[in-house]
Design a protein around this nucleic acid. Structure first.
Lengths: 214, 214
DNA sequence: ACCTGTGAAATCGTTCACAGCA
DNA sequence: TGCTGTGAACGATTTCACAGGT
């Protein structure tokens, strides 16, 4: 296949496949077929094959996939063999929780700096990470080699913060402010909107029985 | 239209439309057409009309939508006129940050209780919310009238915690553990997987230039 | 003239089903 | 026989385009 247009749905599933493979590898298994993988983790075998086929021919007919080999391939595809340094803008509770979040620690992402506008917070240390003045973002970004930014500020400041981040040259941003933001096409912006998720629960509770399964 | 099968994508957009309308109402506008709404907030006007048409005929031909009226309709549809009480399982940093999250405060959701298994934490108070023993979940749920649960525990405990929550009768659950969970169809389960989101940024950084826009 | 509500078309994503290889 | 890789069918979602109401 080797298509050029790969959906984010596909790459998200790659993350899931990787977890499944990690679990199987941990159990000492050497190979797995798309069918066994699907049955065991409630996935669809054709979808697994299609998703993988976007990036190459990793399987062996009659055998399946070599788990260790496929793990390495997915790690490479997802860029998990590269290290990234994260700057979190907003040193409130959310910023602090994210700094501490083990996802940032166990993976190839490392929180290098926090930023805030509150003089009370600037200079303090949260979970071993120093809080800088947000005005110094560009300078600190260079010194610390930050290539990923997280927006954890109130919605009304989020767009301005994003523009500052992008002006400083960061190309990958995760936004936790409950508002959609605008950015150039060469910047990857991922918004996690907890308000929408909450309101979706509210909708369900208001009309019991009608479940849109995930 | 009044269709029976309403996609979650549609209800998620309802949340967004509500925000837009709030902004317009704040500016003192009385009516808005789907086209103006779309242009201003970078949406698609046909989609707005289709989404709204699922729930009734709220517009006036030649005029557009009455902002105040439409706001009330969406609030009713999303069940934002009902109050909900939230129990958060896991009183670590993430649980604490969520307890503090203004989204839970400003909306119709209120954090009523935290739960943990750590004796050090049980009995303490985080952001005015008491931490209970997770073993007492069912009892506390009844006393406090909890109807929404949040899972903020490590992935390996998440499925067990979900089962406990569902056994206690809670029908709406938000999961922050980075693992897909299984639940019955009559339970609304919403998973927010920060690991997948991070890995999606990693994928982008590994192949610059190919952006799957949100 | 303006704008909604909605069939029809286009696009995107998933699942089926099987040819072909080990 | 077992399994991958993939064209084709199917299903879901988005966008177009316009009939019809004000």
């Amino acid at each position: 296949m080797k298509a050029d247009k790969i959906s984010e749905l596909t790459t998200n599933r790659l993350s899931i496949y990787l977890r499944c493979l990690n679990e199987l590898a941990h159990e000492g298994r050497k190979t797995v077929s798309s069918d066994r993988l699907a049955k065991r983790f409630h996935l669809n075998s054709a979808q697994i094959r299609k998703d993988l086929a976007c990036f190459g021919e990793f399987g062996v007919r009659g055998v399946g996939y070599y788990i260790e080999d496929l793990r390495e391939q997915i790690i490479r595809i997802l860029g998990l063999d590269h290290h990234h340094r994260v700057g979190i803008v907003g040193a409130g509770r959310l910023g602090a929780a994210l700094t501490d979040y083990y996802g940032f620690r166990q993976t190839n992402f490392e929180v290098a700096a926090l930023f805030d506008a509150d003089p009370e917070k600037i200079g303090s240390v949260v979970s071993d990470v120093k809080v800088f003045d947000v005005k110094d973002f560009s300078k600190v970004r260079k010194n610390e080699g930050i290539d990923v930014a997280v927006i954890a500020v109130p919605a009304e400041y989020a767009q301005k913060v994003l523009e500052m981040i992008v002006d400083a040259g960061v190309k990958a941003v995760m936004n936790f402010a409950p508002t959609p933001l605008l950015a150039d096409d060469d910047v990857k912006l991922k918004t996690i909107d907890l308000t929408i998720s909450l309101e979706s629960l509210s909708y369900f509770l208001a009309r019991p029985g009608k479940n849109g399964r995930e």
